[in-house]
Simulated scan of single mutants.
Amino acid sequence: MRIGVLALQGAFIEHQKSLAACGVESMQIRKPEQLEAIQGLIIPGGESTTMGKLMHQFDLFEPIVELGQQGTPIFGTCAGMIMLAREIYGSEQPRLGLMDIEVERNAFGRQVESFEADLEVPALGEDPFKAVFIRAPYIHRVGDPVEILAQYGEKIVLARQGHYLAAAFHPELTEDLRLHRYFLNMIGSY
């Protein structure tokens, strides 16, 4: 199994390290033809408006939409969650629109208001998952096919819709590999 990590900006190397710790090969994705060699894709955190512009510039936007529509699992973290969303509260910025969610950008405040929190994530077991929130979004609204996996207070911060997984936080910045393993299990052959 080989997982692609969108490598236009953001924490893509940290995701690759997490995947390696899971015993899985990964590759950096910067060209559309590279998408043919992967069984899953991670869209990392970063800055979502810049990421959208770079995806268009590198002709990756439509190929990633097609990849998702063909059933390839996609995991978006922080800005990656924003890119997966169908709607972005108060914004018309480019997005993939693959998940039936509405997200709110920078919902927890500015960079200096970043924080860590223990989340209850039943899908990952009984132990809390330490989540790192950096200028994080949250899910404002979910559609019927979306399963809420975790909340921070009243805010939805982890959700799944079929072969799409979206986290408002950065699991790649912790040593807890459970969320990466959860994604790999979505692919089926892990």
Results as ranks from 00 to 15, higher is better:
Met1Phe: 11
Met1Ser: 14
Met1Cys: 09
Ile3Gly: 01
Gly4Asp: 11
Val5Asn: 00
Leu6Met: 08
Gly10Ala: 08
Gln16His: 11
Lys17Phe: 13
Ser26Asn: 08
Met27Tyr: 01
Met27Leu: 15
Met27Lys: 13
Gln28Met: 13
Ile29Asp: 03
Arg30Tyr: 08
Arg30Ser: 15
Lys31Tyr: 14
Pro32Leu: 14
Glu33Met: 09
Leu35His: 00
Ala37Pro: 00
Ile38Phe: 01
Leu41Arg: 00
Pro44Trp: 00
Pro44Ile: 02
Pro44Met: 05
Gly46Arg: 04
Glu47Trp: 02
Thr49Cys: 00
Gly52Lys: 09
Gly52Gln: 07
Gly52Tyr: 05
Lys53Asn: 14
Lys53Thr: 10
Leu60Ile: 10
Phe61Val: 06
Glu62Lys: 15
Glu62Asn: 15
Pro63Tyr: 09
Pro63Thr: 08
Cys78Ala: 10
Cys78Ile: 08
Ala79Glu: 05
Ala79Ile: 01
Gly80Lys: 04
Leu84Lys: 09
Leu84Pro: 05
Tyr89Arg: 15
Gly90Lys: 14
Gly90His: 14
Arg95Val: 02
Leu96Cys: 06
Gly97Glu: 05
Met99Ala: 07
Asp100Ser: 14
Asp100Phe: 03
Ile101Ser: 05
Arg105Tyr: 06
Arg105Trp: 10
Arg105Gly: 00
Asn106Met: 11
Ala107Asp: 05
Phe108Trp: 01
Gly109Tyr: 06
Ser114Asn: 06
Phe115Asn: 10
Asp118Glu: 14
Leu119Cys: 04
Glu120Phe: 12
Pro122Trp: 06
Ala123Arg: 10
Pro128Ile: 05
Phe129Val: 12
Lys130His: 11
Val132Gln: 04
Phe133Asn: 01
Phe133His: 01
Phe133Trp: 01
Arg135Ile: 13
Pro137Cys: 08
Arg141Lys: 15
Val142Gln: 10
Asp144Cys: 02
Glu147His: 13
Ile148Lys: 07
Gln151Asp: 06
Tyr152Ile: 12
Glu154Ile: 06
Ala159Asn: 05
Ala159Ser: 10
Gly162Pro: 03
Tyr164Asn: 11
Leu165His: 02
Ala166Trp: 02
Ala167Lys: 00
Ala167Ile: 07
His170Asn: 08
His170Met: 11
Glu172Ala: 03
Leu173Ala: 03
Leu173Glu: 08
Asp176Leu: 04
Asp176Gly: 02
Leu177Ser: 08
Leu177Ile: 05
Leu177Ala: 06
Leu177Glu: 05
Arg178Cys: 07
Tyr182Val: 00
Phe183Asp: 03
Leu184Asn: 11
Asn185Lys: 13
Asn185His: 15
Met186Arg: 07
Gly188Gln: 05
